[in-house]
Write a protein that binds this DNA or RNA. Structure first.
Length: 945
RNA sequence: GGGCAGGUGGCGAAAUGGUAGACGCAUCAGUCUUAGGAACUGACGCCGCAAGGCAUGGGAGUUCAAGUCUCCCCCUGCCCACCA
């Protein structure tokens, strides 16, 4: 009988369903495993072959866990509220609920084709009132704890989607759904106080060692905690000054550099505010502000590259040194970051530096960086000496080449250096040193760089530790004429001309490389920490010490700020959970009593957005007008709805207990099933995970859930690209549908191929030819059943047991590709040989998670009535993995010159004897200095030349 | 600009510091044939008739031994971003 995937797959999918094979029961005595997919949003497009990749992985993983004896929870559901469903419904003129039902049906059919082991009795749907009742209930708990509040602060408004958006819904200042430029609009909003959890969301990332580092890093960026000082600069010379313009407050993370603040820069937004309160800015300033604000809107914050600004005609007093410095309006200062104004320290901030260069503003270095040498670190018990030196970059008289000063003896490649004599001009020192050490003697120019630093190192040629104050000099030669130099100097300096690129690449010491770059490419602040200079009483302190001291000195406040803002939680749209609040003229804001939950979405004729800032629900008077639960007086319902993120912020808890009518999850069941052991998905690196962690922590604080973090391990998949390497999309016409693949090649082939393509986390292009190779593997498996015999084939034991071991370990580690290739190795090995029945059964079991249909069919052919998917995972025998003879490489001086077959545990003498014969011609007449033998791996003869 | 992940054959990719390229695709040669999306046998990093040499983005280093560890440079992808 040939391998007929069509018949087999349909047959078993039916049987599994009717026998409830994958139903999960709560069994407190058994150890559990909770394997969860990020549940999908059921779009109208249906699935392409990229979508199931994560579902296949969790299917394989959860099948392994079940076979290993775990009580396994592996559910699926639908995240079906939100703008896309609503926009789809409006466009196609059907009710969103109808559209969602239709889409879910289609999704389920497509998932069913692939033979997944979901327990469908636990299916949930965020738009089901029995589900969103609890979403509303959790919202009310947030409200009761003061974590949900109303606000009239201006929020982001998308004119196209006609709804408010949270900061997280923006992409570079544009609406992430439709790309429209977002406006600021003041309107009443519900907001969740996620900032109160910011520190815990940040710190508890440390509780998640099994999360990918890049996801954690993205979350840290998103939370954006930074510590710094709030400092006031008083203003003078403000035309039309009012109380609003007496002073300007800035936020800085570097108060230690305050003595180097040579100007203040304010955002166009703040300038506008000042104008509104009476500042009589000049015509030019006025025009600049208007233009900068307009650019923000037309180009978005992202689009503006060039830094521009204008002197505001105002002065500020630097509170550190009481110096009068100018105030500029600058487009690189943003209105909604920090206070909307900065103190600019061009010597130590890249952006301020760029601006200061452009407008010729003073640059004052106030931190002297200390470079601690890693190649020649200071030594204990050696004399410490202090000196002043120059580091000298020397430019060629004609070409763009520079002098490299190499030393064979000390193995370094650096610039020239030399000690400054008492009272000597650093440029003269530099010229003298170059004449003495290189011989070049005529100079066109020389200048001292506006950058000093300190080096701390051990000087091997003098045998002392050095702490040196460095002045940096750039010399340019007039011509190539050379004078006499001593032999001693010649031996010490191997002089050569190098291009700029070669210099940067070859210089062996970081400080010299930095000086070279500074001299030839222009200035850039560096991040070596250091001590203060030009800072009055604070000179000599380290940056860290000075930060708080200077903040105190100027009367500033040390504070913590976050990039993450409170979560704007209301949407002025129809298709979402109604916010369960009643507004009563007499009692104010009244939460809907628990007994009246859920507040169901009413039927409505027109669910298109109104654009007035009110949701379509506001027009349904019968629904809006209610009696106040308190005073029974006339009251109105809240008409805003929740954002799409609401339903997915707690759904993993509902799967534990999906039908519970008394609470969102039974406490006992929660304690048994928590936490999610493996969570698998692709999108949503930041927002969903942050929101979910936030709600979970909140529920933890109410003692409603029993763990601090919901997801122990996160596996983040790489997307499958189209065959042309682009994203699969209707637009490119490169979509491949699983339906077609399953029909032609079978679900098992598709599953196995998606696991075999490459590393799970990599984005890899689909390749149908490669997939056919996997189908060939399944056919060879099918053929193998003909050579099964009663007695085991001992020759296959080692490879079989190695395969069992590797497949189990690789699935556990989500290294599915190498698990599959190991099974291919086994089948190649078994090809043309007799396979013992017991061996065959073990192999079918380890293949079963990947290819559930064909293995089930082959299993039945052996006469079994019970499903293979209820079998347990085979145990490998460590003894059988061991082989009698193995081939190891024989090296001579690390190069492979032959090989030899040995027992893996052969003694060294035997190995050497056999090895010598194998590489005889390489050893003749040579002195054998050493032999390295690693049993089972390698034999290396080290010989003299 | 910052962070993270990467850079290995014609392609997808393997490789606890120990024979680089497992496994698969494609290609080539052959066998068989009921001419099929066949199957089977073999070859397949580069240069070279061979002996051998050269090869994991480039350069240095540590080591008996480096794709793997250290340092520097270059490039690509993803995320964040004039975040003060």
């Amino acid at each position: 009988m040939r391998y007929d995937h069509k018949k087999i797959e349909k047959k078993w999918q039916k049987k599994w369903k009717s026998s409830n094979l994958y139903k999960t029961k709560d069994d407190p005595k058994k150890k559990k495993s909770y394997v969860l997919d990020m549940f999908p949003y059921p779009s109208g497009e249906g699935l392409h072959v990229g979508h199931p990749k994560g579902y296949i992985a969790t299917d394989v993983y959860s099948r392994l866990k079940r076979m290993q004896g775990f009580n396994t929870l592996h559910p699926m559901g639908w995240d079906a509220f939100g703008l896309p469903a609503e926009n789809f419904a409006i466009k196609n003129k059907i009710h969103p609920r109808k559209a969602v039902e239709k889409n879910i049906k289609r999704f389920k059919e497509q998932l069913a084709m692939l033979g997944f082991n979901y327990d469908w009795s636990r299916e949930i749907n965020t738009t089901d009132p029995a589900y969103y009742k609890w979403t509303q209930w959790i919202f009310l708990q947030l409200y009761k704890k003061g974590l949900a509040y109303q606000s009239n602060e201006p929020i982001n408004w998308c004119p196209s989607c006609q709804t408010g958006l949270s900061n997280e819904d923006l992409d570079g200042g544009l609406c992430e759904r439709c790309g429209s430029q977002v406006e600021k609009r003041s309107m009443r909003q519900w907001v969740l106080r996620i900032t109160r959890y910011a520190d815990r969301l940040l710190n508890d990332l440390e509780l998640l060692p099994k999360w990918p580092e890049h996801i954690k890093e993205a979350q840290r960026n998103w939370i954006g905690r930074s510590e710094g000082a709030l400092v006031s600069f008083s203003l003078t010379d403000v035309p039309g000054q009012t109380s609003g313009t007496h002073q300007v407050e800035v936020f800085t993370t570097r108060p230690d550099t305050m003595f180097g603040a040579t100007f203040v820069a304010i955002s166009p937004e703040l300038a506008q505010k000042w104008i509104e309160v009476g500042w009589q800015a000049s015509k030019e300033v006025h025009e600049y502000v208007q233009k900068a604000l307009a650019d923000r809107i037309t180009q978005g914050v992202k689009g503006v590259q060039e830094k521009t600004g204008i002197h505001a005609g105002i002065s500020a007093i630097n509170p550190a040194n009481q110096e009068k410095i100018p105030v500029w309006v600058a487009n690189y200062v943003l209105g909604d970051v920090g206070t909307g104004a900065i103190m600019a320290v061009p010597a130590h901030d890249e952006r301020d530096f760029e601006f200061a260069k452009k407008y010729q503003l003073p640059i004052v270095q106030v931190v002297k960086p200390v470079y601690v040498d890693k190649i020649n670190p200071v030594r204990e018990g050696v004399k410490n000496t202090k000196r002043s030196i120059v580091i000298i970059a020397v430019k060629h008289w004609e070409k763009d080449l520079y002098l490299m000063n190499a030393s064979e003896k000390y193995k370094w490649k650096i610039l020239f250096t030399g000690g400054i004599e008492e009272g000597e001009d650093p440029v003269e020192t530099a010229k003298r040193e170059i004449r003495e050490e290189s011989g070049y003697k005529n100079f066109r120019s020389g200048r001292v760089l506006d950058f000093v630093h300190k080096d701390v190192f051990y000087a091997p040629h003098k045998g002392v530790n050095r702490e040196v104050d460095v002045t940096n000099v750039l010399l340019e030669l007039e011509n190539g004429e050379m004078g006499e130099i001593t032999e001693e100097e010649q031996a010490l300096h191997q002089v050569s001309w190098k291009t700029r690129e070669e210099m940067i690449q070859e210089i062996s010491h970081d400080n010299h490389r930095f000086v070279f770059r500074y001299a030839t490419e222009g200035g850039r602040p560096n991040d070596w920490s250091g001590t203060l200079i030009h800072s009055g009483a604070f000179d000599g302190m380290t940056s860290d010490q000075a930060k708080k001291k200077i903040t105190d000195h100027v009367g500033g406040v040390w504070t913590t700020t976050y990039r993450i803002k409170d979560w704007v939680f209301s949407r002025q749209r129809y298709w979402g959970e109604p916010i369960p609040i009643i507004h009563c003229a007499a009692c104010g804001v009244v939460p809907v009593p628990d007994k009246d939950l859920p507040v169901k979405l009413p039927e409505v004729k027109n669910y298109a957005p109104t654009g007035t800032g009110e949701s379509p629900l506001a027009a349904i008077e019968k629904w809006v007008n209610v009696a106040c639960p308190h005073c029974k007086g006339r009251a109105k319902r809240e008409t805003n709805t929740m954002p799409q993120w609401a339903g997915s912020s707690w759904y993993w808890l509902r799967f534990m207990d999906p039908k519970n009518k008394k609470s969102f999850v039974d406490k006992k069941k929660e304690r048994y099933w928590k936490p999610v052991d493996v969570y698998v998905g692709g999108d949503h690196a930041v927002r969903h995970l942050i929101y979910a962690r936030f709600w979970h922590k909140f529920l933890y604080d109410l003692h409603l859930v029993s763990g601090k973090e919901p997801f122990t391990r996160l596996e983040f998949l790489g997307f499958i690209l189209a065959e042309d390497g682009r994203k699969m999309s209707k637009r490119w016409g490169n979509i491949i549908r699983p339906d077609d693949i399953v029909k032609t090649w079978g679900a098992d082939t598709l599953r196995l191929y998606e696991m075999f393509m490459g590393p799970f986390t990599d984005a890899i292009a689909w390749n149908t030819n490669n997939m056919i190779g996997v189908r060939r593997f399944l056919e060879r498996v099918w053929t193998l059943r003909e050579s099964v015999s009663a007695k085991d084939n001992r020759d296959l034991d080692a490879v079989l047991h190695r395969t069992i071991k590797k497949v189990g370990e690789d699935i556990e580690a989500f290294k599915f590709n190498t698990a599959v290739s190991q099974m291919m190795v086994f089948v190649n090995e078994a090809h043309g040989k007799v396979v013992g029945r017991a061996q065959w059964e073990m192999f079918l079991k380890i293949l079963a998670p990947f290819a559930p249909h064909s293995t089930e069919e082959l299993w039945t052919q052996l006469g079994y009535k019970k499903s293979i998917h209820r079998e347990s995972w085979p145990k490998y025998s460590a003894r059988k993995i061991k082989v009698a003879v193995t081939t190891i490489a024989v090296q001579v001086n690390g190069k492979v010159r032959g090989e030899v077959s040995l027992a893996p545990d052969a003694p060294k003498d035997d190995a050497c004897a056999a090895g010598r014969l194998a590489v005889l011609k390489w050893l003749e007449n040579k002195e054998e200095k050493n032999v390295i033998y690693v049993p089972g791996k390698i034999l290396n003869f080290v010989i003299g030349e």
